[in-house]
Simulated assay, not measured.
Amino acid sequence: MTTASTRTVSLRPDLQLALSEAGSGRPIMILHGGGGPFTVAGLTAQLAVAAHTIVPTHPGWNGTERSEWFSGIDDLALAYLHYLEDADLRDVLVIGSSLGGWIGSEMVLRDGAGLITGLILLDAVGVQVEGESIRDFFALDARGIAEYAWHDAERAYIASANVSPEQAARQRANLETMRVMAGHPYMHDPKLLRRLGRSDVPTLLIWGESDRIVTPAYGAAYAAAFRNARFETVKEAGHLPQLEQPAATFALIDEYLQAGRPV
């Protein structure tokens, strides 16, 4: 098993990034969604066997510091691009889950240096699709989250009821940070969809068939906006297929990687 190391990188006096790194090889930046880094931990363990994984904790998540000016998805996208530039990383694959997918999409559009050569989105938010609204996550209680975000809703609801008080407090704080970063307009940039056609980065979009936060139809429209993208669904999975169906999700990612620079 590859052991991860953690460190804090200062991009400027009032902007620090908490990073977890493991493995060696092609750099892969893995961006978590609103639930925090644990939602991509399995991906990291899988990919660090043959690659150099870089997993930032978004500023403000899990108790990390966030300056008041740092308040949008564009801030996150630019911060991570600046890190890649400062670290002189090339041929980078970016993988983003949910909110992290939105960040990844914004990154490839701003990557004038061509550092990013691959993009994988897992049930990403970030675009506005006519007739396919993004479920208001902030309005859902624990039962609603289980119902809309998971294929196995009952199992997810039972698990959510068994978290420790510390975990519950962290989840609430993460949710409030997400509200600041992505709540207005809610979970999207109205202009992003039409801009995605400027990207020729090979992109794979993986979607849980049971996702009712952002439906597969939403995902298909997201994929169609890219110049060079493929859309795949995962059976018996909701908004986090890497947690509900890790084997099927990893198989799609492995196929993408083995293809060289596919799609």
Rank of each mutant, 00 (worst) to 15 (best):
G25H: 08
R110G: 00
Q171N: 12
A169P: 03
A51F: 13
T39A: 15
G118C: 02
I30C: 03
H184Q: 11
V263P: 07
S105W: 00
T203P: 09
I95A: 04
V180M: 02
G72C: 10
E147M: 06
R12L: 00
Q128N: 09
G42A: 14
S10E: 13
E255K: 09
Y83M: 04
L115D: 00
M29H: 02
H82Q: 13
L15Y: 04
D136I: 00
H58I: 13
E85Y: 12
G101R: 01
S24N: 09
R135C: 09
Y186M: 02
Y80L: 00
P241L: 14
L122T: 06
G131P: 11
A41C: 15
G238K: 11
V163R: 14
H82E: 12
E166F: 08
M107E: 01
R179G: 04
Q16Y: 04
D111G: 00
L192F: 06
S210R: 07
N228Q: 03
I145P: 02
E147C: 01
I134R: 10
L121W: 02
F138L: 04
Y256E: 03
L84F: 02
V125D: 03
L204P: 12
V127L: 03
N174W: 09
P190H: 07
Q167F: 09
V108P: 00
E154N: 14
E209D: 14
P56H: 08
P165T: 12
D141Y: 09
L99R: 06
A159L: 07
L76E: 06
N174L: 03
G33K: 07
P37R: 14
F137N: 03
A124G: 10
E21L: 11
P56T: 12
R26E: 11
V214C: 09
R26L: 05
L11K: 06
E255Q: 15
N162L: 11
Q242S: 14
M1H: 10
L205N: 06
L76H: 13
K191Q: 11
R66Q: 08
F70D: 07
R172L: 14
A50S: 14
N62R: 13
Q242F: 06
L81R: 00
W150M: 08
K235V: 13
A223S: 12
L252R: 14
A113K: 09
P262G: 14
A146M: 03
T53I: 07
R90H: 15
G42L: 12
A142V: 05
R110S: 09
G101A: 10
W61S: 08
W61Q: 11
T117V: 01
G118A: 04
V234P: 14
M29N: 02
V94Q: 06
R155A: 14
N174H: 12
L31Y: 06
E244N: 12
E106L: 05
A79E: 05
W102T: 04
Q46V: 04
D75H: 13
L81W: 00
T249R: 08
W61L: 07
L109S: 01
T215I: 02
P59E: 05
T64I: 03
V55W: 04
R212P: 07
L192R: 10
A225C: 12
Q245G: 11
A223Y: 10
I103F: 00
F137C: 05
T64F: 08
P241M: 11
P165Y: 12
